[in-house]
């Protein structure tokens, strides 16, 4: 190994140390309407005292990357500072006609669809910038869909640490264990971002991991 290569490796090692301490980026990824923004709002409200974005039942409400910098999480005598990044839901199809059912006018629906496609592209681009990802899944739905599998596969390939957040466990037909069974190699935490159920376990797990 030449001196230049050695210097490069050392610089990269030091920069990764620096990044770990100063700029941890935690991303929220998942399919559309799984509750990513509701969770982002909950985390942001818990540790910054303010919400992050608007959550809605209309799909693709989040169409741009949202970021809250310097979120300081405290657990006991430890603290963790990170940037929280909420991403648009990943989808393989976006049909403007689906938005019409939510009372949007045709022109609004088409604009929303166009913005949503750009949002998916942005979310995919941003994946390489993450230090850790919370994959937020709706625990009332079948977890074995291709979007979930593709997101997890990409995180694996990039060796980015992952927690699966089985959201909406407050709902009647939810099942966090169905998600655990579908993806047994991942750590899965069942929560309700809406009412805050089990968020403490999520925070403790993040603290331990980072």
């Amino acid at each position: 190994m030449g001196l230049a290569e050695l210097r490069k490796r050392l610089a990269s090692f030091l920069s990764s140390l620096f990044r770990k301490k100063k700029h941890i980026r935690i991303g929220l990824y998942g399919p559309v309407n799984s509750g990513k923004t509701t969770l982002a709002n909950r985390i942001s409200l818990d540790w910054l005292g303010e919400e992050m974005g608007k959550a809605s039942v209309i799909p693709h409400e989040t169409r741009e990357i949202q970021m809250k910098e310097n979120v300081i999480m405290k657990r006991g005598n430890k603290s963790l500072t990170f940037n929280l990044i909420d991403t648009p839901g990943i989808a393989t199809k976006i049909d403007f006609e689906n938005f019409l059912g939510f009372g949007l006018k045709k022109k609004e629906a088409k604009t929303r669809a166009k913005e949503a496609t750009k949002g998916v592209i942005e979310a995919i681009k941003w994946l390489d910038n993450m230090d850790m990802v919370l994959v937020v899944l709706d625990s009332t739905l079948d977890p074995l869909n291709q979007v979930n599998i593709t997101i997890l596969g990409n995180l694996d390939a990039r060796k980015i640490p992952v927690f699966i957040v089985a959201n909406k466990v407050d709902l009647k037909n939810s099942s966090a264990s169905r998600i655990r069974d579908a993806f047994p190699n991942y750590r899965t935490i069942g929560i309700s971002a809406k009412n805050g159920f089990n968020l403490d376990e999520l925070y403790d797990s993040l603290m331990k991991e980072l």
Binding site: A113, T117, I121, I124, Q146, T150
Partner: peptide, 26 residues
């Protein structure tokens, strides 16, 4: 592979229009 899947999704999103809403992939 997972990169190819993401690439396919990304390129599909660029082509979404009034007459093409995207793909189903499995």
């Amino acid at each position: 592979n997972s990169d190819e899947e993401f690439f396919l999704i990304r390129e599909t999103m660029k082509k979404v229009s009034d007459t093409f809403s995207g793909i189903e992939l499995s």
